[in-house]
């Protein structure tokens, strides 16, 4: 009772457990604009789903969660479609390039080591920076009433010199179209190399390098993730046969609901509060990864795939 058999995963799961798992990750997705694969894949593996099937089926369910989340954020006026599409184009270019880079890296031997260490360092850097920056922001909000006139940084000056300056209405910013294209390519490349969706690399990039308001970042990131996951699901289903639709269906029933609630929670929180919570989440993922690298695993053999 309460069990369903997953034909592609080749195992049965407790429906209620998977539904709750979907709801929880969907909630995070709606709040922070991340896909949540970094949490979902290892949890599914713990429930006996093969790593490749866990990752591919998760992409399938993120299509639903991010569609639900995008719609909710669109209603709140928080999706910058223009920015999202440019980032997406960059992401596709970068992803294609990243797949080629990883092929070259794999031939050099220590690729896994380099990738993992870079990943952990990047999580630590991004999480740490975001944490400190938003903590200062939160303190300022309490102590100061007059806005500080910021001196234009060298980065901001450089941004203004780039050609193809355009206005992004929803984000309320003006910058060169080249910038999101280049940054999108960069994130897409990193995501492909590290084998992750890239949501929590993209969110800080949008906040700090594109200087978009935090709420628009969440909505726009979800919009972008939607298309990335449509692509991944179809590719995985057609070439590797690793998408378990039954699993994705149970997950998405939970995650679409979670994403709706998440969007509402996100609306109630201030930008800096959102940032600090995401920073904590990113740092927790880093600590978890660090532990799994430092502690000897119970079994010294494993299956291929996954994160």
């Amino acid at each position: 009772m309460w069990h369903l058999y997953l034909p592609i995963a080749g195992n049965s799961v407790n429906v209620l457990l998977i539904f709750i798992l979907g709801g929880f990750v969907g909630l995070l997705s709606g709040i922070f604009g991340v896909g949540g694969g970094f949490l979902m894949t290892p949890l599914l593996m713990m429930l006996g789903i093969p790593p490749t099937v866990a990752a591919a089926s998760d992409s399938n369910q993120i299509v639903a969660a991010s569609a639900s989340g995008t719609l909710a954020h669109y209603r709140l006026g928080n999706v910058d479609f223009k920015m999202g599409i440019i980032l997406l184009v960059g992401g596709i270019l970068g992803g294609t390039g990243g797949v080629q880079i990883i092929k070259i890296l794999k031939t050099t031997g220590n690729a896994d080591f380099l990738i993992t260490v870079t990943y952990v360092l990047m999580l630590g850097f991004v999480g740490g920076y975001m944490f400190i920056e938003s903590l200062q922001g939160l303190k300022k909000r309490v102590h100061e009433t007059t806005p500080v006139v910021k001196k234009e940084s060298r980065y901001a000056q450089l941004m203004k010199k780039l050609p193809l300056q355009t206005r992004f209405e929803k984000s309320g910013i003006e910058l060169s179209m080249l910038l999101p294209l280049i940054l999108g390519t960069f994130v897409g490349m990193l995501a492909a190399i590290m084998g992750v969706g890239g949501g929590f690399i993209m969110v800080p990039v949008m906040v700090y390098l594109l200087r978009m308001p935090m709420h628009v970042v969440v909505g726009t990131s979800l919009f972008q993730i939607l298309f990335t996951c449509v692509n991944v699901t179809i590719m995985q289903a057609s070439s590797n046969h690793t998408v378990d639709f039954i699993l994705a269906l149970i997950l998405l029933l939970g995650s679409t609901l979670g994403a709706q609630f998440g969007a509402k929670i996100s609306k109630k929180l201030a930008g800096d509060q959102l940032k600090i919570l995401l920073a904590i989440l990113v740092l927790l993922v880093m600590v978890k990864m660090l532990f799994s690298l430092l502690l000897p695993p119970g079994i010294l053999l494993g299956y291929k795939g996954g994160h």
């Binding site: 639900s68 719609l71 998405l252």
Partner: peptide, 8 residues
């Protein structure tokens, strides 16, 4: 998945 997400 897309329809389910939008429908929700």
């Amino acid at each position: 998945a897309l329809i389910a997400g939008l429908l929700t």
